[in-house]
Design a protein around this nucleic acid. Structure first.
Lengths: 108, 108
DNA sequence: AATTTGCGTAAGCAATTACTTACATATATA
DNA sequence: TATATATGTAAGTAATTGCTTACGCAAATT
């Protein structure tokens, strides 16, 4: 039962749930209504999201309001940012080539 | 056989492979040597990474050099960045509270 | 008090995942 | 040419995933 943020956001349904509650909290049934799958299925996905800290659940009477708590996305963001310069460099390789040709214009 | 970038980076072994070849390309056996799992297992993971464009494979004789090609990570990055302001706001809520207290220091 | 509503959870199931071993193939080397 | 090397791929498997239906329970409503 691996349950890290990378895996949590791998599922499109879970990403969609995050998107739904990101800008306004919704209770569980309101979320489930937006999907074609059953309410228990949504309940299970929300449980996973809650377990890895991406949403927090606030009980109000018999309702459970889900709100996004996305600080954990920093873990993914940081991992990606390690490589950003690397992949953006590739766009500059033509530049490098041109520079080299200018520095050594008549190499035999 | 869903095969998107989100799912590709969900697996820790695949992330580790990306990390290995990110800064210097390696052939498949060199990659497999770094792991405890079998060479075919690594071969399959590399196939997945190649299929979603995160690594590119260059044949050199009988060897296959794997190099990172991480532009696709932008898809993940963009998805996360949609929410950054949202979650960073939460860090500022304490600030806001403190500011309010300063502005209205002796509210009855 | 009885019923409805909002939800959790268990059990079951098909599909997928991540491995394994065994074998095939192309290229390099002796 | 025979052998060693680097790799792909198929088949099998155990574990995991993502759903379903069925049921239970607490809070609200009647």
């Amino acid at each position: 039962m691996r349950r890290d943020v990378f895996q949590a956001i791998a599922d499109p349904t879970r990403r969609e749930i995050i998107n739904l509650v990101a800008f306004n909290p919704l209770n569980l049934n309101a979320i489930a209504d937006k999907f074609d799958i059953s309410r228990p299925a949504i309940s299970q996905q929300i449980k996973i999201l809650a377990e890895c800290g991406l949403i927090s659940i606030k009980k109000q009477g018999r309702e459970r309001y889900c709100e996004a708590s996305l600080q954990q996305l920093n873990e993914v963001s940081n991992w990606i940012e390690k490589y950003r310069q690397l992949w953006e460099e590739k766009f500059n390789k033509l530049d490098d080539l041109l520079n080299n040709m200018q520095n050594q214009p008549n190499k035999p």
